[in-house]
């Protein structure tokens, strides 16, 4: 016990912050790929595919990320599958992000004006050509500000990986606190680091949104 905050502690926090960034990238990449598939399924011409993907989104959006984390980390080993904290956290974030990004991107696809879809059809483009050459390039422009905004949510939510013992920023703060017992100071530092990671993204998203027309009200998981 005892001692005071020194350079080693700050190094440890920095290391944790790097893992927070790493885990965020895993969530963004995995969740982005899965979310893109979810978004495509949500606007699929097949009723069954639409129904299943809607069910998936409703299920995930109705469950806290924390419970998904516990389910993968403690639940899967009970079924005989061993998972490391990194795998559990990465998989949970991927699932979580896919449902929310899928929903955001579906909205972006649908906000590409209807005549664009019809014109592409009128030009006898195949479904994949229409998607890749007409809809996607326009949807990407619409999707950029909310996606950057959602990256803030991903970074904040990686803090929940601490509960399965993954040593990212929040967990490294807890570990340091266990030896120094100066919770207020340490968690303030942690909060400042998270803010430094998230605020530039928030500003950037806001600026993109302003440039791209009227602001939409955005929902955010706390």
């Amino acid at each position: 016990m005892g001692g005071s905050l020194n350079a080693n502690h700050l190094m440890f926090l920095g290391y944790g912050a790097l893992w927070t960034i790493g885990l965020s990238l895993i969530g963004l990449l995995g969740g982005g790929i899965a979310g893109f598939i979810v978004a495509l399924c949500r606007i699929s011409p097949s009723r069954i595919v639409r129904l299943i993907s809607t069910g998936y989104v409703q299920l995930i959006q109705g469950t806290p990320l924390l419970v998904i984390m516990f389910l993968t980390y403690f639940g899967l080993p009970a079924l005989g599958v061993t998972v490391s904290p990194l795998m559990a956290a990465g998989a949970s974030l991927t699932i979580f992000v896919s449902a929310y990004l899928g929903e955001i991107w579906r909205g972006c696809f649908e906000s590409v004006p209807k005549p664009q879809w019809e014109a592409a059809e009128g030009l006898a483009l195949s479904r994949s050509q229409r998607m890749m050459k007409v809809i996607l390039p326009q949807a990407v422009r619409i999707a950029t500000p909310p996606t950057v905004g959602f990256m803030v949510q991903i970074i904040k939510n990686t803090s929940l990986a601490s509960v399965v013992g993954f040593v990212e920023l929040a967990r490294s703060g807890q570990i340091i606190n266990n030896s120094l017992f100066e919770p207020f100071l340490i968690y303030t530092i942690i909060a400042v680091i998270y803010f430094a990671l998230c605020y530039p993204l928030s500003l950037f998203s806001h600026r993109l949104e302003k440039r791209g027309g009227p602001a939409r009200i955005e929902l955010e998981a706390a």
Partner: peptide, 18 residues
């Protein structure tokens, strides 16, 4: 801005220990 750019987990710890 401060609340929206920091995780809830850290906010809870800050209130609790604060």
């Amino acid at each position: 801005e401060v609340i929206r750019n920091t995780p809830l987990l850290v906010q809870i710890f800050l209130v609790y220990f604060g």
